[in-house]
């Protein structure tokens, strides 16, 4: 793994700017960091921080994801447009999350909520077949 200086320059004129060869040392460091963070996330999960559990776990997972994206997926060295395109998917995903979960979270805050209970499935009866004969 000491071949970081291997020649790939023969093609530099043909593929200029298209690739960046990371050193093996960098990959290995990232791997060690990822494994370490995995241990931390497991260790932290043994304690109960109440509502913060999810935030902590997602925070660590996001750091790990960032490492994978930046180094294993070479995004750190990629062209601006590729960065924008890939990262915009997270932006749009967050829109789905924010609005859907905000609806879910604020539904109980409606001022009529105290009179409106959520019935459980067993309280209602369903027809066994719905127009199956058509």
């Amino acid at each position: 793994m000491s071949d970081a200086h291997d020649s790939h320059g023969d093609f530099g004129d043909l593929q200029m700017g298209t690739h960046h060869v990371s050193s093996a040392l960098q990959f290995t460091s990232v791997l060690i960091a990822l494994l370490f963070l995995t241990i931390i996330t497991v260790a932290v999960a043994q304690f109960d921080f109440g509502g913060a559990n999810m935030l902590i776990a997602m925070g660590i997972a996001s750091v790990k994801a960032a490492l994978v994206i930046l180094f294993f997926m070479h995004v750190k060295y990629d062209t601006a447009i590729n960065k924008i395109m890939f990262l915009s998917s997270f932006l749009f995903l967050s829109l789905l999350f924010i609005f859907t979960l905000a609806d879910r979270a604020t539904r109980q805050m409606d001022h009529r909520a105290h009179t409106i209970k959520t019935p459980v499935a067993s309280e209602w009866v369903h027809p066994n077949t719905l127009n199956s004969d058509h």
């Binding site: 009529r112 409106i116 209970k117 959520t118 209602w124 009866v125 369903h126 027809p127 719905l130």
Partner: peptide, 27 residues
């Protein structure tokens, strides 16, 4: 309340409409 699928309670003359979602109450 709905006992099966989505319905909606619609009174045009009163200008009210509400979907009826099985699994919960609407008002």
């Amino acid at each position: 309340e709905s006992t099966d699928v989505l319905h909606a309670f619609f009174l045009p003359s009163q200008r009210v409409k509400r979907d009826i979602v099985p699994g919960r109450y609407q008002s």
